[in-house]
Design a protein around this nucleic acid. Structure first.
Lengths: 135, 135
DNA sequence: GTAAACCTTCCATCACAGGAGAAGGTCAAG
DNA sequence: CTTGACCTTCTCCTGTGATGGAAGGTTTAC
């Protein structure tokens, strides 16, 4: 299978496939006599795995660490569990931050509806934006 | 007021102040005879405004657009309201996405606790990670 | 008179996941 | 024999908000 076919089969652009190779996510493929990359179904599986892992919010670096364990003969499950735990904590923290930001924004939007632009002075730049209220 | 004093007064590093100037967030200051930047209280107010706007999640580019309106003599309030509305919608969308990602991660973490690493085969890379379940 | 603390400009770098374009080699069909 | 679809490597660019360093000029304190 050449890179174009793998691209069509996996839905990843050829550029991305080469990029993954440089990042250690795909092994260096064998080459045909003319230097073209030659792929197998294993590469197709890898690309699918990478997509699943990305959907779980893992970065390419983290995915590479999982793949490298597997390539070293170690089942990466416990490492994957750690990554997922950490990622979940991370997502929860971002959720908390975003929730707080949403409250802040809602307050500012309310504020913007009540204030009169006539009262907005030069020195303020705009009187709607104020320091965040810490509740 | 020189840049170091403005930095101390505002809490922004001098580098950041110069950076803001290049981004059009601060006007080009007057210069003393030796070429040093000379600032006034208005610049101090601007930096405070910028901090407030950043706390509301506005990007520097968006903040610049507000400041430029003000500099053109237009009260930027309605523009600020639009920005806040858009930002709120944006935050809400990210919240939704993150909430979905959290569910997905929770499911994967559960899955990881039930699966046996012994059953994790090479072809899968790791059998914990699967396509997202679309509920 | 010298050292510390300032100031100036310009250029490079970080994470993140690729995208864009150049310049050229290869292969099948018409 | 040429056109078009592939393929190769190379280097730079994107957005975000700064931050770091180099190389040099100035001012203040002692």
């Amino acid at each position: 299978m050449r890179i174009g076919e793998l691209a069509a089969a996996s839905g990843h652009p050829t550029r991305t496939i080469r990029f993954y190779e440089t990042r250690g996510l795909l092994p260096e493929p064998t080459r045909s006599t003319n230097g073209y990359r030659v792929y197998t179904d294993a590469d197709s599986h890898r690309l699918e795995f990478i997509r699943n892992a990305q959907a779980a919010g893992l970065t390419l670096t983290e995915i590479a660490s999982v793949i490298h364990l597997r390539d070293d003969g170690t089942p990466p499950c416990s490492h994957v569990n750690e990554l997922l735990d950490a990622k979940l904590a991370d997502v929860q923290q971002r959720l908390d931050q975003l929730t707080e930001l949403r409250s802040e924004l809602q307050e500012l939007v309310r504020r913007g509806r009540t204030l009169d632009p006539e009262d907005c002075t030069t020195n303020d730049i705009c009187h709607i934006l104020r320091p965040p209220s810490r509740d």
